[in-house]
Write a protein that binds this DNA or RNA. Structure first.
Lengths: 309, 309
DNA sequence: ATGCAAAATGACTATTGAGTCAATTATATT
DNA sequence: AATATAATTGACTCAATAGTCATTTTGCAT
């Protein structure tokens, strides 16, 4: 029995495998970030991990499979937290958006190598699966920005949304790049506020009629299709659906312990953010959640999603 | 005798060679843009041009030499015109900057494939010479932006210049990308004005104290070094030095024909912008300039620079 | 027409690196 | 301890491609 009153069970048998899989992902991401995708050989990655090439191929069926797994792994980690903040109905739109940018920049500090790799963009291009993945990522980002814009300014922003989305995204990307390359050091919260402020200033200039938009729906047809196809922000993964269900329930019930339950949920989100989340901690936190019968089912569902990775 | 009263001399003997060299550059740039640097083989380039691989290697000693030549060739073409507008002392700073962006976007439409290649960034990375070249290009761009900011707002902008430069550059890059990929169609003049307007809005927000900068000199030490080392905007190529000398002389003399002479100079600049400038036209225009004894020397110097390419 | 030099060719070499698989080693089970 | 099963290895194949060079073709002068 530990302090939380839980029996700590040994991590399941496949634990070792999962770890090695992650070690490979992390090693590969660092090498890709440093030398680029095509200039990093599978041999080098194997050596970096300390295993043989043959073993490497027992975890990932090809180099392409490896890079796609990297994207899937990290993208989930980075974006999930933004999504969760989006679920919080108590936060006013502007603070919410600031917080979401803040969280992204925190993520960047955690996953520097991944971001560096991503910014390089030089993944074995003209590859179908990879560019599909990149499409999907961009779709999510834009879907999120669009949501935020509408929440902030309502329908009247529609005519300017494309210009604002592209400009905001490019500013975001620039500061991300500066952080990742270590050129700039700054508090995530400060950058988050800064970006939202720029967006605000530009949006107001549009709304006051002092600026004319360049982009319009017709030009952006491709993007619209992408955003729709991905179902994008509303619900794009079972795991995030599970988060959403839990939050909805929490908000609806409005229990007296509600705020402490949210705190636990946030701590869970924090833990999953780590590159090596501790299973015991997660299990403990979920046990706490499940003590409340009203949300036990939802908690269980989320736990299954998270621990099954 | 043609309409300009000039004998048209046959294009010099190396003309054929020069053409083929340029055909190779253009073919290569298209293939690099389409499939990426490392996924395009020298064989494919040779086939694209309709020559053998051996011949290709008589023009460029290596693949690296080829990509560097591409950068040198196009960068000169794109940036030179921005520089020349910078020389025009009559234009107020804001209009000048708008015009410079406009000209860049015009250039982008001319050299789409090059820009696409450049945006991909996936040139044989960790290569010394290439990254040196990219450094130089970035240095020039930032040096130009810095100049423009100081002209527009004076010294009081200094504290915010880094944030403004990075944000402006990123917005510029975004619209460039949209143009290059054909997502957006827009008049270069409109985009130029648009970008300057965003810069203005953001700058005013800083100057009014409503926004705080994120970046400072200390963080940007590397950039400062780069910008200084390149001598950057002030004078970075013999050719541009020659332009500058000519313009200075023109402005100083203030001849009655001054404006028609400037028109001729601008027409020369237009012609050099083309992917296949006509030598005859250039020679004719220079002949017109040289009719004025006062600027004959400067014109001759510039002509030598331009025609020697 | 003849001979010569320059230009062009493409078969060839050498290297790199993705992916395979038979053989070996480690681990678990009885 | 013996056996079975799973995990790991690295030498090997095979394809791609940068760069070379002996041979052929072309263009030009006499």
């Amino acid at each position: 029995m530990n302090v939380l009153g839980l029996d700590i069970k040994p991590i399941n048998v496949r634990g070792a495998d999962m770890n090695k899989r992650e070690v490979i992902l992390e090693t590969a991401v660092e090498l890709f970030a440093e030398k680029g995708y095509s200039h990093t050989s599978m041999q080098e990655i194997a050596e970096g991990v300390g295993i043989s090439k043959g073993s490497l191929y027992s975890f990932f069926t090809s180099k392409e499979d490896l890079i796609i797994s990297i994207y899937e792994h990290y993208q989930q980690l980075v974006f999930e937290r933004v999504f969760i903040i989006g679920l919080d109905g108590d936060l006013p739109p502007r603070e919410k958006l600031e917080k979401q940018f803040e969280v992204q920049f925190e993520g960047i500090l955690h996953y520097k190598a991944y971001m560096k790799m991503h910014l390089r963009g030089e993944t074995g291009t003209n590859n179908k699966k990879i560019s599909a993945m990149e499409h999907r990522m961009r779709g999510r980002l834009f879907s999120w920005l669009q949501n935020s814009l509408l929440e902030l300014y309502g329908e009247e922003i529609t005519a300017y949304k494309w210009d604002l989305m592209f400009m905001t995204q490019s500013i975001y990307r620039t500061y991300m790049m500066l952080l990742v390359t270590g050129q700039a050091e700054a508090k995530p919260a400060a950058i988050g506020k800064h970006i939202v402020r720029q967006l605000e200033v530009m949006a107001n200039d549009f709304l006051n009629g002092n600026s004319q938009p360049i982009l319009n729906d017709e030009m952006m047809q491709d993007f619209i299709v992408d955003m729709d196809r991905e179902g994008a922000f509303v619900s794009f993964e079972k795991r995030e659906q599970a988060w959403k269900t839990l939050y909805n329930k929490l908000n609806k019930l409005d229990l007296p312990q509600s705020s402490s339950l949210k705190e636990i949920a946030n701590r869970i989100s924090e833990e999953t953010k780590k590159s090596r989340p501790e299973k015991v901690v997660l299990k403990g936190l979920f046990a706490l959640l499940k003590e409340n019968d009203e949300i036990a089912n939802e908690s269980k569902a989320l736990e299954d999603e998270i621990l099954s990775v």
